[in-house]
């Protein structure tokens, strides 16, 4: 019991302190996961709308690929990128390995299929009447996609929330391509792993509390956006 209260006490002191090290970790986490989510959403949502509307041979194969991508283990995504960015790899000359840029790329790889898959699902779930009316308007592909996208707005917000939730919580990909270098590529999840390994359980739990709080705040903001969208339906 004493052990537990000690850990909790350490955790709250660590969070309340909010020292320069923790501030840097939080800032980098928000930057990396925010950028990765943005890239994944900017590419994934339009792709998802297209995938939800398109009718072509092999579409179900593409849908299956995207759905598989939604569940790809982060360590695998990290590993693939590691091979590309390795000194002798295809993109080795970029010298991007163990930089925040590589971490953004790795997490964007994870965010893209989630943004695309959730959006495509929302578009496919548009009612038959909506799909028929959309087809009846005889619009070009871009205008059609914009109307469909606006129609599934709450679904797109859910896609953003799911993508951000996924990347901010993952540790495998950023650990492999970022390397968890103190002051350079350390984010909340890799910092938790580090502190836990070194038996600094109070600091690890403090970082966990910060991570959960961040996730909660972002989801609250997105839920608010979703409700606003519903109110203006």
């Amino acid at each position: 019991m004493e052990f537990l209260t000690d850990v909790l006490g350490d955790a709250f002191r660590y969070v309340a302190d909010f020292g320069p090290e923790l501030r840097a970790i939080v800032a980098l986490t928000l930057l990396v996961s925010g950028l990765a989510t943005a890239i994944g959403v900017v590419l994934g949502v339009p792709f998802g709308v297209w995938l939800g509307l398109a009718r072509f041979r092999g579409r179900s194969i593409l849908v299956a690929l995207v759905n598989t991508g939604m569940g790809i283990p982060p360590v695998i995504a990290g590993l693939l990128l590691l091979i590309l960015l390795w000194n002798d790899g295809v993109l080795g000359s970029w010298g991007a390995l163990y930089t925040p840029g590589a971490m953004v790329a790795a997490q964007a790889l994870l965010a893209f299929p989630i943004a695309a898959g959730v959006t495509a699902g929302a578009v496919r779930n548009l009612s038959g009447d909506a799909q028929e009316q959309l087809a009846a308007l005889h619009l070009g592909a871009v205008r059609r996609a914009r109307i469909a996208g606006r129609e599934v707005w709450p679904g797109i917000v859910a896609a953003v929330a799911a993508a951000f939730g996924r990347v901010v919580a993952e540790v495998g990909a950023v650990l492999i391509v970022g390397g968890n270098i103190e002051g350079e590529t350390r984010v909340l999840t890799t910092a938790i792993v580090q502190e836990a390994r070194q038996s600094n359980l109070g600091a690890a739990l403090g970082l966990g509390i910060v991570l959960l709080t961040l996730a909660l705040l972002v989801n609250l903001a997105l839920t608010w956006a979703q409700l606003r969208g519903e109110a203006h339906a």
Binding site: S127, D129, A130, E132, Q133, L134, A135, A136, H138, I147, R150, E151, W153, H232, A233
Partner: peptide
């Protein structure tokens, strides 16, 4: 109207039986 089948239906403006109203 080209909603089903091979016709493009480009010359046809079509009102479905249950007209759908989009958001907005």
């Amino acid at each position: 109207a080209g909603i089903l089948g091979e016709r493009t239906g480009d010359e046809v403006v079509y009102m479905p039986q249950r007209p759908y109203m989009f958001r907005g």
